[in-house]
């Protein structure tokens, strides 16, 4: 037992250095997914509510595909698919793997977000929109000035869920060998940075996820509280 602890203490600086690097990649993927999927999700939610039936049908179909199949499968298809069809757009390096992951995550999460946005928009009473209309506001003005804030307030709890799930889902990118947190930890179980057969780094990744999600939970809770000055 003491031997194991001693070993861990010895390995700790090297492992943490490597895990930090992986976590940085995880954070990058997390951030870019949010930046891309939030606006794209809003756009998809508009399309899925469109009065133009074909657009609505196509959108619902895409949402069905994306939500109905595993994210891991989507990662594989987006990363390997183009190359197999003769258009190797990603390249084999880490940067290609990162952007392929980003595309897969943004698409996947945008579809989930779009459904949350849709429910949030539909939850705003019709009278709010009508009040804007009789005051001569345009549709865009009504959305930005009336609906948006009320929608945001409504969707904070379900969005918090998705965002926390996203943090953990980033680990799926290891399936296309993106060197994120889990990948880097797993490398120590074979050999990495001169350390072989260490399994504790894998367990230790839990600390990163828990701390980061704890921080996010605090922030999202604060946002929810900040929006409690009005009722919807």
């Amino acid at each position: 037992m003491t031997e194991l602890i001693q070993k861990i203490i010895e390995q700790f600086p090297v492992v943490v250095g490597s895990l930090n690097e992986g976590f940085l990649q995880t954070l990058k993927l997390f951030a870019i997914t949010l930046i891309g999927a939030l606006p794209l999700g809003l756009l998809i939610s508009f399309c899925s509510k469109s009065s133009f039936a074909p657009l609505r049908a196509v959108t619902r179909f895409v949402i069905w595909i994306v939500r109905g199949s595993p994210l891991m499968l989507q990662l594989l298809i987006i990363f390997y698919g183009p190359g197999l069809m003769g258009f190797p757009v990603w390249g084999g390096g880490q940067s290609g793997r990162f952007w392929a992951s980003a595309v897969a995550f943004i698409l996947n999460y945008a579809c989930y977000f779009s459904e949350i946005f849709r429910s949030g928009i539909e939850g705003v009473p019709k009278g709010q929109q009508e009040a804007g209309q009789v005051l001569g506001m345009t549709r865009g003005q009504i959305f930005v000035n009336v609906t948006l804030m009320q929608m945001i307030k409504r969707i904070v709890p379900p969005m918090s869920n998705e965002i926390i799930t996203l943090v953990k889902d980033t680990s799926l990118a290891r399936v296309i060998a993106l060197q994120e947190l889990i990948w880097n930890a797993e490398a120590f179980t074979t050999t990495s940075h001169g350390i072989s057969g260490a399994i504790w780094p894998l367990f230790f990744t839990g600390v990163y996820y828990l701390l980061f999600n704890g921080l996010l939970t605090l922030l999202l809770g604060r946002l929810e509280k900040k929006l409690s000055y009005f009722q919807v």
């Binding site: 009278g127 709010q128 009040a131 009789v134 009722q231 919807v232």
Partner: peptide, 27 residues
């Protein structure tokens, strides 16, 4: 055309995220 008419609703339909003053000013 809507601007020729004003409408006060049975259920008020004030914008909950704005103060009374801002509700009046917004449009």
């Amino acid at each position: 055309k809507r601007l020729h008419f004003g409408l006060v609703f049975q259920s008020f339909n004030l914008f909950p995220q704005y103060t009374a003053l801002k509700n009046v000013m917004l449009a």
